[in-house]
Design a protein around this nucleic acid. Structure first.
Lengths: 197, 197
DNA sequence: GCTGTTATTTATCGATCGGTACAAAAGAGG
DNA sequence: CCTCTTTTGTACCGATCGATAAATAACAGC
């Protein structure tokens, strides 16, 4: 309801997308306010006025990232007829985008901040929580497959989800280390060999 | 041959071990010179005199870390009679130490610095190289198993090594996120299901 | 045109960053 | 004792960190 006042001179969403790209590439602690304002094309007070502070801007950039990625992941998870195909499609999709040109390699949620200063603890917690949610989505899909009969009743959805989550995290690091899509696909192929029979 | 001059008043190896602990816990960029000197119990000029600078100190701390870990890993890899047992022993060992109390969780080589500023690129390259070496050791052990006949000739050592490396990296993140040894062992158990038959 | 509100630019703020200059101190060799 | 060498503690360097104060500019409503 802020129809009054001087109108914002920049596209808030474009600026946010630029911030997301920098955080994704350099991580939370590796990104300075100077990096952000330069990439976003705005001055510091404009950033603070529109986004609060560095931490809030990161949280919003992360939400944008998830919003962009969620569509395809959700599609891969839900549209496949069996849990196994759903998990494999999710892994294959990530193998593709993690090594894609024109964007930072690997997953922003996994790579942005794993260790750091006590001051950045809230950001680490935020990211850990998002990882936990992702793992839960895998688990729910596997449990659904079990309920629908395409996953053996002897399988342990929680354990399988933890395993495929670890694989996705390892793939993010491997992608940052320069692995090609083919190499990531090789990891996916091997990982799918663990599916319960 | 520096028998002359004022003798060093601190234990260099103890100070290095303290630096290693801080780098391991907070990562390279998350650790400040103030953090280091406080943990090491020395003043700044002593640190620079004994270790060069932050980057060289990190490299030496990393070498110490590898030296400590290498013994058990090498033992696990070489003493098992088959490649499968060797890989599983390595994974089990890491599952145990990653979640062990009294030390930072996860692997220092994996977690210390994955993304960051352009200035820290040399450190990232150093860590990526160490990860590559670790992967190569797994590969060599699998290839040896193939030569010795306990691994199917149809198996792909390179692909298997990439897979188990990804698992170890994912386990490091999972451990940092608070996973118990039992949870990590569950991942190991699932991952061993991918072993070629 | 005037008022109220918000965004803009410029110029900082105090704190911390990694890294050192300098002089006093502690040993070895003479 | 004196000299040489290295380490020590103190105090500080310029640069950068995240974040703001203050003044000006651009709009809406009246």
């Amino acid at each position: 309801m802020a129809s009054t006042g001087r109108p914002r001179a920049f596209d808030r969403q474009r600026a946010l997308a630029a911030a997301m790209a920098v955080f994704w590439e350099r991580g939370y602690e590796g990104t300075s306010l100077a990096d952000l304002t330069e990439a976003m094309g705005i001055n510091r007070p404009s950033l603070y006025g529109a986004f609060g502070n560095k931490e809030e801007l990161f949280a919003e950039a992360l939400a944008l990232y998830e919003g962009i990625e969620a569509e395809q992941i959700t599609k891969a998870l839900n549209e496949a007829p069996t849990a196994r195909e759903a998990i494999e499609a999710t892994l294959r999709y990530n193998a593709r985008v993690y090594a894609q040109d024109g964007r930072p390699r690997g997953c922003m949620i996994v790579l942005s901040l794993l260790v750091g200063t006590p001051e950045s603890r809230p950001v680490r917690n935020l990211l850990a929580e998002r990882r936990r949610v992702g793992e839960h989505e895998l688990r729910d899909r596997i449990a659904r497959g079990q309920a629908e009969g395409d996953v053996p009743s002897s399988a342990a959805p929680r354990q399988l989800a933890a395993f495929y989550t670890a694989i996705l995290q390892g793939m993010s690091i491997t992608a940052r280390d320069g692995a090609s899509r083919e190499q990531l696909d090789g990891i996916v192929a091997t990982a799918m060999g663990c599916w319960p029979k």
